[in-house]
Design a protein around this nucleic acid. Structure first.
Lengths: 352, 352
DNA sequence: ATTTGCACTCTCATAGCGAGAGTGCTAGCA
DNA sequence: TGCTAGCACTCTCGCTATGAGAGTGCAAAT
């Protein structure tokens, strides 16, 4: 990294902000005019050449303005940006919406995603809250036919799983009920590991073992908080961004749109998040091609975990073009994390 | 409706098929050549003029080929099209995929949507199966703080609802458990109406009443099988259709994309479906602007209800440009309905 | 009742062109 | 030495013109 004089920093900050705003390559002249810099455009051009040397910005072609590179954005986010906190008014507005919604968990999640999408004019993604480790709250076994039954699990975080069971020997509802009552006693509040351990130790009938292993299996599967995304909101907003609807040659743009839609629809960003969020806490910013996933070269993510560590929680964030209002996005994501945390705390009675 | 000679019908059929295939206005010459008609192109042109008179087709501009109108598609679907059943191979392939998936309900749903999307290269939408009327299976009340509790409902179709309760007087978990056990006895297997009726008749404590009304409310809300769409698949496929990526002037196309994405994201098609499906059974075809919802002028729907009437069920279908492979789409939707029906029947033990 | 032949219309792709934007460099100035 | 003014140069972008091609509608012929 080259030494960054104060002036270079000022210029880079101005350039990134301007580009985020205008979505077109930024000219030296523009910077001087709009950002009241005390040097002439020629001086600015000189500095720009330096920044380009350092791969922080680049020119799409000779005699076009400059555009930040991924590296430039990264520097901006790390050193130059200031998080633009939400105004009190916005905060009130958001709170108010949650207040209006009936106290239903899934509605909160949906609302959170929708608020983020609207506030940032970009796409928001979010997982339902789920326990980091699945704990069984309760299960029932319903007889379907003589040889099949239907297992319904309720986990402590409120999710429900259903699975069909194929019995080896015929059993009726009464038998199953008795059995499930007994096993419920045993497994209530247990995790996958505990259930599995338990299974290993004692002797069980085949049916009991079947139910036990199935439960353990489901709990285990459930463990990964990145299992699947449930809510996507504001995908249209992305398409309205100039890079996807106006700028550049037709073909490239179509290609970009296709890519970003594919990423969104198939949750391709999950692996990236998984590794990123496992290592560190707080709001994470992932910029464009930094993560070497080719399809994501043009998009940035601003994401965070919400919920209580080791208890119930999930993931929320926004996804948009690399030219993203990072300052605001970070503020919004941080704030929504906080809101969700409070809601969950109330709901589950954690101390914060 | 004008009288439709055999020849007119033949020509219309050929034209619609060709347009569905090529996505470009169809010339008289092309029809003669590709569909081996026994008349000259001039004759065909003459007939085309007649069809245009009848608003079944139109010309985008003088000296372009013809394109079917919504009315034309309708006539095609109603009188000319033949449903192209899925080959045995395709059927086997589909079955096989379901066979591979563990017997988990939500995975079936997801798989169904995904299969439809892939088979038809268009977007598929689907609701999770839910009972047409909500019946309570079981509920629990968990103490959170002194004055708040957490209500978890399990309905008979397996969905779960959570809601926070604000108590008027402090209660601890023991009290709540006792209470909920008693009420569970009362309400088990009941519908919204039954719970509500029950509430009206007897005297209850405020807490009991609170829980009762909340349960009734949730059951009621749940009743509408069109409450919300859970699965969308293959949205990218739509963007790959020429009308959204290649044809026509830039601006119009963007507008189209924006519209269709909005419709998809916000489930705007639900009201249309609701009225359509309530009146009749089987696979429904809704073509473009027929339903006077302006945003949907350019898209068609092929949808059906699945599940057992009055018991558990949902909605599935595909959504794409009006230029859609109706014959195949209808076949696929019909087949997937059947598959889902069988799966549900197995799972819940209905006789089919 | 069809078909042939032909004039006519409209679109679409291409090339050419000029204006404008923005740069890099050089020479001059504090 | 650091900054600025001036200027030539480059590249894009939008506009217009143009011509080929596609497809029609119509009139005359079969």
């Amino acid at each position: 990294m080259i030494p960054m004089s104060q002036r270079k920093q000022d210029i880079l900050r101005a350039l990134v902000e301007e580009y985020i705003h205008s979505a077109t390559p930024v000219a030296s002249e523009t910077l001087v005019r709009k950002y009241r810099l005390n040097y002439s455009s020629a001086t600015v051009r000189h500095e720009l050449a330096g920044l380009e040397e350092a791969h922080l910005i680049y020119q799409p072609h000779t005699s076009a303005g400059r555009v930040p590179t991924d590296l430039g954005y990264r520097y901006f986010v790390e050193h130059l940006m200031q998080e633009s906190a939400l105004s009190l008014n916005e905060q009130r507005l958001i709170r108010h919406q949650f207040y209006q919604v009936q106290d239903q968990l899934d509605q909160w999640v949906r609302l959170t995603a929708s608020v983020m999408a609207r506030l940032l004019h970009s796409a928001a993604v979010m997982t339902s809250p789920r326990a980091n480790i699945g704990f069984l709250k309760h299960f029932e076994v319903l007889s379907v036919t003589e040889l099949t039954a239907h297992l319904v699990l309720v986990l402590r975080d409120g999710t429900v799983k259903q699975q069909r069971l194929l019995l080896e020997a015929p059993m009726d509802q009464a038998e199953l009920s008795a059995l499930s009552e007994r096993l419920n006693q045993l497994y209530q509040g247990k995790s996958a590991a505990e259930v599995a351990a338990h299974l290993a130790r004692y002797d069980f009938t085949p049916v009991e073992r079947l139910i036990g292993t199935t439960i353990a299996h489901i709990l285990e599967q459930h463990g990964d908080p990145l299992g699947d995304i449930f809510y996507r909101e504001g995908v249209v907003n992305i398409l309205e961004q100039p890079e996807y609807s106006r700028m550049g040659p037709e073909e490239e743009r179509n290609e970009r749109v296709r890519k970003v839609m594919e990423v969104l629809e198939q949750n391709r960003f999950l692996p990236v998040l998984a590794s990123e969020l496992r290592t560190s806490d707080g709001v994470q910013v992932i910029i464009g091609g930094e993560n070497e996933w080719d399809e994501m070269r043009d998009v940035s993510l601003v994401v965070a975990r919400y919920g209580q560590e080791g208890k119930v929680g999930g993931l929320l964030g926004v996804i948009g073009p690399t030219r993203m209002q990072y300052g605001r996005a970070i503020a919004v994501v941080r704030y929504m994390t906080q809101v969700m945390n409070e809601l969950l705390a109330e709901m589950y009675g954690f101390e914060e």
